[in-house]
Amino acid sequence: MADERVTEPRIGSVDALRGLSLLGILVVNIAFLASGYRMAGLAEPSFDSGLDWGVRWLVTAFLENKFYLLFSFLFGYSFTLQLDSAVRQGKAFVPMFLRRVGGLLLIGAVHAVLLFPGDILTTYAVVGVALIILRRIRPRTAVILAVCLTGLLALGLVLLFVMSKLGADAAGTISGGAGEAIKADTELAGNALQIIGEHLRKFSLIMIMRVLFQGPAVLAACLIGVAVGKLGALRDLSAHTATLRKLQWTGFTLGLAGAFVYTYSVWSGGVHKFLGQAVDLVTAPLLAAAYAATFLRALPHLPRVARWLAAPGRMALSNYLAQSLICSLIFTGYGLALVDQVSPAIEVLIALAVFALQVAYSHWWLRGHRYGPVEWVLRYLTYWRKPTTPQQYRARHSAL
């Protein structure tokens, strides 16, 4: 188990970055958990003030489609750590990781049906199988493949734009979106069977977009994580200051420019939605990289922030699922049924409050446990045995 000691400092920074990503994902997802209109791609008609629109624009520009890419990058990076660990310990990696992605698929499917049809764990499970196939890929090839995937996705959206100009949906609007939103609100505010029925209906539609667009985008981000993991680039960040600085300059210039084009396409219609999404596919990874580079460069100067964020990052799967559960209890018929009754600004405040609670809870939980509750289950499925307790872990390491 000596390898765990070697990787501890690096994993600490990665956990902190994962914790930051978890916060960004919550701030974005809460709008879709709280509103049938947002799920239909529309603004909630009850909230039309300047503050409401300002929050929508800021969240869309700076957060949307950025932090799930960071999370995907970390999934790919962690894949290399697990692969290296299996090799060092002489374990068969493929069956072990297949059990892991099988567990993710099961957990994600339950999550999508019961709590949030926008679940991404099922996507990670499928992408995980692709990573197994590509596990021997070289870092340079992984980066090239990621770039090609992103370019092909953007080209596909441009072609959809051309097709729309030749015929259907030239304005790039969602047909029947308002009717869909009203129906969704009614179902989400109803009983458990109505909520689950609505989730199943939405999940089937979302999966089409996942297969065509988000899945390949997640794979591209994972491949960048695989390349970084294989190069060991996060082991000594001080040796890569110049690279991190370049990522910041490129990401904050091109990334922010692309983010505003995308946001303009979402909320004003001045840019066709397919063109806006094509621009976002290319530039969102750059902005996500700039966020990561800035955070990692600042982390040594912010040890307290690093400790705060590392704990929820260590049990990110449990916290991700808990976020959906808490929001469901607030916004659907499972609890208060406040669907489409909370303004965008209050949604953000709720998200910040939920995350603050998760930071405190994660620190408390990890005092007596090595893993989060859902992480424990996933680890059991992965290794097909009970994970070690903190006491067993300390006893084993004190004997080394």
Score class of each variant (00 low, 15 high):
Pro9Ser: 04
Pro9Met: 05
Gly12Met: 09
Ala16Asp: 08
Gly19Pro: 04
Ser21Glu: 04
Leu26Asp: 08
Val27His: 01
Leu33Cys: 02
Ala34Tyr: 03
Leu42Ala: 12
Ala43Lys: 15
Glu44Ser: 15
Asp48Pro: 00
Glu64Asp: 15
Phe71Trp: 13
Gly76Thr: 01
Ser78Ala: 15
Ser85Arg: 13
Val94Gly: 05
Gly102Asp: 04
Leu105Ser: 07
Leu105Trp: 12
Val113Gly: 08
Val126Lys: 05
Gly128Met: 04
Ala130Ile: 13
Ile132Trp: 03
Ile133Arg: 12
Ile144Lys: 13
Ala146Ser: 14
Ala146Tyr: 07
Ala154Pro: 00
Leu193Val: 12
Ile196Phe: 02
Arg201Asn: 10
Ser204Asn: 03
Ser204Asp: 06
Leu205Asp: 14
Ile206Asp: 08
Ile206Gln: 13
Met207Phe: 13
Arg210Ser: 04
Leu212Lys: 13
Gln214Val: 14
Leu223Gln: 08
Ile224Phe: 14
Gly225Glu: 09
Leu231Ser: 14
Gly232Pro: 02
Ala233His: 05
Arg235Cys: 00
Leu244Gly: 10
Leu244Tyr: 10
Leu244Lys: 11
Arg245Gly: 00
Phe252Ala: 14
Leu254Asp: 10
Ala259Tyr: 07
Val261Arg: 08
Trp267Thr: 08
Gly270Arg: 11
Phe274Lys: 03
Phe274Gly: 00
Gly276Trp: 07
Ala278Ser: 15
Val279Asp: 08
Pro285His: 12
Leu286Gly: 05
Ala289Glu: 01
Leu296Phe: 03
Leu309Thr: 09
Ala311Arg: 15
Ala316Gly: 11
Ser324Val: 05
Leu325Thr: 06
Ile326Tyr: 09
Phe331Gln: 12
Thr332Met: 06
Gly335Asn: 09
Leu336Arg: 07
Leu338Phe: 04
Ile346Asn: 07
Glu347Asn: 15
Glu347Leu: 14
Val348Leu: 09
Ile350Asp: 05
Ala360Gly: 04
Ser362Asp: 00
Tyr371Gly: 01
Pro373Gly: 06
Val377Gly: 07
Leu378Ala: 07
Leu381Met: 14
Pro387Met: 02
Tyr393Trp: 14
His397Phe: 03
Ser398Asn: 04
Ala399Asn: 07
